[in-house]
Structures are given as structure tokens and as C-alpha cells.
Design a protein around this nucleic acid. Structure first.
Length: 438
RNA sequence: GCGGUCAUAGCUCAGUUGGUUAGAGCACAAGAUUGUGGAUCUUGGGGUCGCGGGUUCGAGUCCCGUUGGCCGCCCCA
């Protein structure tokens, strides 16, 4: 038993575990690149004030924060948004727009562990800055869906719930409510799905008992599940110029998503508001269809945040996919890669005398990019062929005394169990020919 | 921060009302096998029974504490 173990909530990645994670990251990178997003990274350690400025003091309870040796208050990053806002805000006037960026990074939150949640985890983050219209949402939601679809997940496995905090503000405003009341009600909507009517308690503690008709309207609005229902619910209020414009943006967004072939993945759902106060418009969350896991991804528009963090104000929309829950979903659906990276070539070596010739070829073959393995100790041929089979190599190269005496190396195709001699001086060309033939 | 539950080999687990030196399968390693394969057989290494204390002639087993895992609440950027 080891004396030391990893800290609570932190995971070790043995090679087979890391292979799965790396596979996920690789497909995310490929997908983001296909969408024209550029990858960036930022420091893991940031000034504590960066998060205070964005989220307020209460956030500190959930941060790995401390004073460094220079007395600076610092924190391990719990999310990417403030950092990327700083980068973009600092060079806003020099960056070509729209700014489409993504990152894959590790985050730290001092929280209690749960299924799909640890104190340290990775997220794929993608954001678009400088585009105020719903075209940015189309592009991002398309990217989000594709980041899951490339693994073989379908609309039977997951879906994206789409909502609009902006519309909620307009609607509740049209009912005569002020901003504090609206924010409190959005908090209630956010909790209602899990907590039931208890979700209204904080509102009632602050503003008194909620009128029955208001509560009914809120619950009805939150249960909207289609654009037609949405238009009907707004009724006469939709005649106002502001709301008419907002509904036009909805049509652009839904039309664009449909044209991208994503209608089956997207569900209008006004029950999603997201807990964060800084979201200003469309918000969306991805879930598994069975509803067994926590949210797979979440995002939305945050047009005020870049400016609030001290940069040049820029409209922005972004989302993040958490690696832990996503990996659980892949595992459940049998889509997690079982691949252990196989060798291309295994060299079977007779004895110390043949080892010299083998080593020269091994170096050359590796320089050509082949994954080459060989036994580190002298082993019986039987063992070596077993090792060759275990390694998954397509070819075995046999450096035996007999062959080398004839100036030859024997090449064995492991799958076909066929062998042939090739000139020892031309092993590289022979191997290349065999691999390219497939 | 709160609650439930669990902890025996790298993994999955067995271990009788408390009783000799804690077992199995898989995995790993060696041999059978001095030039040809994922098999088989034999053998081997590997355990502070999570940790600490208590009860007892005797604790993997019972009691208390603690640490950690899992599940849920709070939170979820």
C-alpha cells in the first residue's frame, strides 16, 4: 500500500485512462479546427480578484485560493471565461472578427465530489467574440453538437435545451416586475425543476408571498417547449418593437440550426435559465436523453462581461463541455475507445551479435515514423513471437544469425503468418512498401 | 458544510458464532520451450485486511474514532 495517495477529488491517469482522455481531446481539437476556431491557453494560476470581479466574493468558498510567497492573493482557475475575456479584451481592437477561439484546459474547484464531478477536471471551451447576432449562437451550437457527434453519439443520446434570459426579462418586465424581482424569479425557475415549489421560497422571503396568478404565469412560461408555444404565450406583448425584434432573432437562430441539420438535437425549453447572473441572452445546456447524468455542456451569451472585466466591450457567446460527464456518457454507450496504441513493427533478435544490426534498423525505422519495439533482454524466439503478437505489431522483423549471414532480414506478416527475406541493407524500403500496400 | 453507504493482492471478490501461517479467479513474472503466436500446464512474486485506538487469552471479523471512495443534499462558473 502506498504511503501517499492523491488528494481528494484528484485523479491519476494510468496509460489506459489517459488514452481515452487523449482520444476525446483529439476529436475535440479536430472538430474545433474544422469550424475555424483557434486554440489558446492561459495560466492555471490567476489573481483572485479576476474571479471576485466576475462572480463576487462568495465564489471564494469554491476556489483553491491562497497567498503566494510575494503575498499576492491567487487562485487556481475554476473556469476559463474570465481569462479568455482578459485576453480578448486586451487586444480587442487588433483581432480580426469574429474572434473564434477554443481551449482544452484543466480547472480546479474546491467542491464535494460527486458522479461526474471532481475537484479537478478538464473542459473544452469555445467562444465567439465580436458578433452580436444569433449567427454566433448558430455556429457555437453547431460546434457543440458536432463535438459530441464525432464520437458516434446521436440525437437519441443527447440534446441541447435552448432558452433565452433576454426574453424572460422582457416577459416578466411586461408583467410589471422590477429587476430585483425578475432576478429572484429566474433563480426560482432555475431551481424549480429539481426543488419543486420550494424554489419560490427565496423570492417570497424577499418580496412577500407571490400572487397566485404570477406564479401560474411563471410556471406556464417555464414549461414552454416550442417556438409556437412561445409566440402564443407572449400574445399581445409580442407587438412591442423590442419583443418583435427578439422573436425575429429567434427565427434566425432556429432557422439556421435547422439548415445545419440540427433540428433533432435542439429543444426549445424556457425552463433553462442557468444560475449565472452574467448571461444576457440565449442560454443552452446539453443533456443525455435518458436524464441519468448531470449536464454535459452549458453556455450562453454574455455581452457585458469583457467590458466589466476591464477590456474593450465586446459581445460574446460561449460554452464549455466537461470532460468527466462526457466520458461517462461515452462509456455508457460503449463509445469509449478500447484502443491501446499498437506497435507497427516488432524486432525479433537472435543474440547480442545480431542486436547491433537490429539497433541500426530500429533507429532508421523509428526515424521514418514507425512505432518499433524489441525485447530489452535476450529471449527465446518463442517468447519473442509471443511478445510480437502482444504488441499488436503488423510486422515482425527477424534478425537471426542465419538470415544475417546471408545478408538478409526476415519479415513476417503477423496477421497472414507469411514470411519473406529482404536484403538487410533495404529494410526501410521493404517495410515502407509493405505498409503502403495496405 | 450536511446525510447515507462502503473499504481484504494491481482488478473482481471469498473469508463460518471471534480461533493455527488470510484465500480464489484475472493480471504480472519464471519455467516447460536454444528459431516462430493470443493456448495449456507447473511454479513464483505480490497483503501493516485503509489508518489509529478499544474489548478479548485471541480481531480481517465486535466497538469507537479517523482518512478515503461511491451516492445524494447545498452548489454547479
Amino acid at each position: 500500500m502506498a504511503t501517499f495517495q492523491s488528494l481528494p477529488g484528484f485523479r491519476d491517469f494510468y496509460p489506459e485512462d489517459l488514452a481515452k482522455r487523449t482520444h476525446i481531446f483529439r476529436l475535440w481539437r479536430q472538430t474545433a479546427a474544422a469550424f475555424g476556431f483557434a486554440e489558446y491557453d492561459t495560466p492555471v494560476l490567476e489573481p483572485l480578484d479576476l474571479y471576485r470581479a466576475k462572480s463576487g466574493d462568495e465564489i471564494e468558498a469554491q476556489l483553491f485560493s491562497f497567498a503566494d510567497k510575494g503575498g499576492r492573493e491567487v487562485a487556481l482557475r475554476p473556469e476559463m471565461t474570465p481569462s479568455v475575456c482578459r485576453l480578448v479584451g486586451a487586444r480587442a481592437n487588433a483581432l480580426k472578427r469574429p474572434i473564434k477561439w477554443f481551449s482544452i484546459a484543466e480547472f480546479y474547484r474546491y467542491e464535494r465530489m460527486q458522479k461526474g464531478r471532481g475537484r479537478c477536471f478538464h473542459q473544452f471551451n469555445a467562444d465567439i467574440f465580436g458578433e452580436a447576432g444569433p449567427e454566433a449562437e448558430i455556429e457555437l451550437i453547431a460546434l457543440l453538437v458536432e463535438c459530441m457527434r464525432v464520437f458516434g453519439l446521436t440525437e437519441k443520446d443527447f440534446f441541447v435545451r435552448l432558452s433565452d434570459r433576454n426574453l424572460w426579462f422582457h416577459y416578466l418586465g411586461s408583467l410589471g416586475l422590477d429587476e430585483p424581482r425578475i432576478r429572484a424569479l429566474l433563480g426560482a425557475v432555475d431551481k424549480h425543476e429539481r426543488g419543486g415549489d420550494d424554489a419560490f421560497k427565496p423570492y417570497e422571503e424577499a418580496f412577500g408571498a407571490i400572487p397566485a396568478d404570477l406564479k401560474a404565469k411563471v410556471l406556464a412560461f417555464q414549461s414552454i417547449r416550442s417556438f409556437a408555444q412561445l409566440e402564443a404565450a407572449l400574445g399581445a406583448a409580442a407587438a412591442s418593437a423590442e419583443l418583435a425584434q427578439r422573436l425575429a432573432q429567434w427565427r434566425t437562430l432556429l432557422g439556421g440550426l435547422e439548415a445545419m441539420g440540427l433540428a433533432g438535437f435542439v429543444q426549445v425549453d424556457l425552463g433553462v435559465v442557468r444560475g449565472l447572473a452574467y448571461y444576457t441572452g440565449f442560454v443552452f445546456e446539453a443533456f443525455d436523453r435518458k436524464g441519468e447524468l448531470r449536464a454535459l455542456a452549458g453556455g450562453g451569451r454574455y455581452d457585458d462581461l469583457v467590458g466589466r472585466l476591464g477590456g474593450t466591450p465586446l459581445p460574446a457567446v460561449g460554452f464549455a463541455i466537461g470532460e468527466m460527464t462526457f466520458a461517462l456518457l461515452l462509456e455508457e454507450r460503449g463509445l469509449s475507445p478500447a484502443v491501446v496504441q499498437a506497435a507497427d513493427i516488432y524486432c525479433v533478435i537472435g543474440s547480442a551479435a545480431e542486436r547491433r544490426a537490429a539497433f541500426a534498423d530500429i533507429r532508421r525505422l523509428r526515424a521514418l515514423g514507425y512505432r518499433v519495439e524489441y525485447p530489452m533482454r535476450e529471449l527465446a524466439f518463442g517468447k519473442q513471437f509471443k511478445a510480437a503478437a502482444d504488441s499488436g505489431a503488423r510486422l515482425a522483423l527477424i534478425y537471426g544469425a542465419e538470415e544475417l549471414a546471408r545478408g538478409m532480414v526476415k519479415v513476417r506478416d503477423m496477421a497472414e503468418r507469411s514470411e519473406r527475406d529482404v536484403p538487410a541493407a533495404g529494410v526501410g524500403d521493404a517495410v515502407r512498401g509493405l505498409f503502403e500496400a495496405h
